[in-house]
């Protein structure tokens, strides 16, 4: 459990960090919380030559609303989201998700931005961010790029982030009136990667029909997935039991799980169906003002 030799650098500004990435390119990895990267390094599955530790950069740990969005900084930890009154009162999906990521030790260190950049299909934030249609702000040598979450994930451990870019912020749209969200996960034990997990976000119109629907799926594909057909199934409809069941079935059909120790693909598909049903019911209940 001893990593390969690597060079450690701790820049004090984002510009300096980007400069290092420019210099070292694919040889460098950004270190934020480290709870995905360090275990891979200790097993020598990942052996970056340079580790660019951004933890000393000031001003990257914000968690606040402005301009119609919630800004989550590159160094905002899972635990910051978990314990934030703002998140708890206004972003139920995020609050649900923050509570079920790994265990408290990991949550104290791990970051939302790092989790997205790592692009593990089992990362909970990927599914959650897809559901709420977040945007990823990438800072590189030129001006910042804002990447819609739908364009961010390319494949397992692979994103559209350039080798000289870092995720400097995540922007989550402010919740609309009559909106609600939920995140549900089935895991083998607390702290495990999900067997399957789902995030749901709905905005109801005045007649109680779904004006907007967001559904993200975790660990049932090569990347975090958006359940597009499930969303379409529900959009414009009153979310009654029939509509919810149709959406749940659509999601279970469009996901693409692989069989592994957590279970066969058929089980994961069925779990997606069950969890989407439950999470949609909870999101709708919350949209109607329930807890």
């Amino acid at each position: 459990m001893i990593p390969d030799r690597f060079e450690y650098v701790a820049p004090s500004s984002v510009a300096e960090a980007v400069g290092l990435l420019q210099r070292y390119g694919a040889e460098a990895k950004v270190l934020a919380g480290g709870h995905s990267l360090i275990p891979l390094m200790k097993l020598r599955l990942a052996s970056p030559r340079y580790l660019v530790d951004i933890n000393r950069i000031r001003g990257l740990a914000q968690l606040q609303e402005d301009d119609g969005t919630l800004g989550v900084g590159a160094l905002t930890r899972h635990a910051d989201l978990e314990t934030s009154e703002l998140i708890r009162s206004r972003y139920p999906l995020l609050a649900d998700a923050a509570r079920v990521i790994a265990d408290p030790l990991v949550r104290n260190m791990g970051t939302l931005a790092g989790s997205l950049a790592h692009a593990d299909p089992a990362g909970d934030w990927g599914a959650a961010m897809l559901a709420v249609r977040a945007q990823v702000v990438a800072t590189g040598p030129r001006r910042d790029r804002t990447i819609p979450i739908d364009e961010f994930f390319v494949d397992t451990f692979t994103t559209t982030l350039g080798p000289d870019e870092i995720v400097s912020e995540i922007r989550v749209p402010k919740p609309s009136p009559r909106s609600g969200g939920a995140y549900l996960k089935v895991e083998r034990k607390v702290g495990d990667f999900a067997i399957a997990a789902v995030g749901t976000y709905v905005v109801l119109d005045e007649k109680g029909a779904c004006r907007q629907v967001g559904i993200g799926l975790c660990n049932v594909g090569a990347t975090s997935l958006r359940a597009k057909r499930a969303e379409e199934t529900l959009r414009g409809r009153v979310p009654d039991e029939k509509a919810i069941a149709d959406a749940a079935r659509a999601a279970s059909e469009e996901c693409d799980p692989a069989s592994d120790l957590r279970g066969p693909a058929e089980y994961k598909r069925d779990l997606v169906r069950v969890l989407i049903g439950r999470a949609l019911r909870r999101a709708v209940q919350r949209a109607k003002g329930g807890a």
Partner: peptide
Amino acid sequence: GLIASVGHRLIGGVTKQ
């Protein structure tokens, strides 16, 4: 080796990829 025992949960997806 290591990939078999550590990477198991990803091997299926990566192979497909």
